[in-house]
Amino acid sequence: MVSSAVLSFARSERFALLALVLAIAFPIACGFRTYPLFIAAQFAVFAMVALSLDVLMGRSGQISLGHAGFFALGAYAAAILSARFDVDLLAGAIAGAALAALGSLIVGLPATRLSGHYLGIVTLGFGVAVAQIALKWTALTNGDEGVHVRTIHLAGIVLSSPLHVYAVAFVALAAVAVFAARLPRTRLGRAFAAVRDSEIAAAAMGISVARTKVTAFVISAAIAGAAGALYAALTGFVAPEDFGISQSLLFFAMVVVGGTASTAGTLLGALVLDAVSQGAATVGGLSVALIGAAIVAVALFRPAGLKSLWRRGEGSR
């Protein structure tokens, strides 16, 4: 057992090293062309949201079918602050994370009394509501015309090329991935898992079940909100159609396909599904159909997700 723990540690180190090499090699391999860098940076942003969702779903056992709502709050906060006050990307990301965290209380507080399907419905409704507000509150959001971001700058440096945004996105993704991977071995992560596995035992240990559930929502939403701010910086423009139900389902599918409670699995799921949705983007409706097919295929053949390709003994979850 001790030796297998050492092995898995070495494996996660190898995984991190491989990911780092790929992230550095990619811009060179694609000749620093704009479009591939944009697509890769967008992957990094979506993967951050998927990891944030896995913190909620995999680690604390709560479902969210509306994560695009938190993503949207972060994106709009950063875009509007940039458009109106020309704020720095870091400040925008902090504001976006804060707004999303605030929004998470709207669903996180009922979550202390709901679980399973009911929580799924509440979060789904939240995601739809945020997209509708973005559409209808035209004074703030310009409705379906969207918000254009002004120049993007970070700590005084203007991020003028796609390579800059690419670098920022992957550094942010790495930070989130390290947080997500280390979380289970922290006191907070143990509280999450305790609440997930047995609310009675968690309460008996003196863990406040309600506070722990809300904390998971706040952390997850804050990460998704920060990712939203990066998304605004990346695309230079945010509009309601980027944050609909299908976007929420894409994030959900990334976690389920990759495998819950697994950082590497979620990253792989994000990569596969982002590729699928990009590849099918030109045909209307095809992307959603393929995402659905991917979920069905995983449910049938790999119920624990892609993580079961390298993790044993987890076939049932």
Binding site: R190, A193, A194, D197, S198, A204, M205, I207
Partner: peptide, 17 residues
């Protein structure tokens, strides 16, 4: 109600939460 995916040591640590 032991936490099945925690090690014995982690279960004991949760007890001291």
């Amino acid at each position: 109600h032991v936490f099945p995916e925690f090690t014995v040591e982690e279960n004991l640590r949760v007890g001291a939460y």
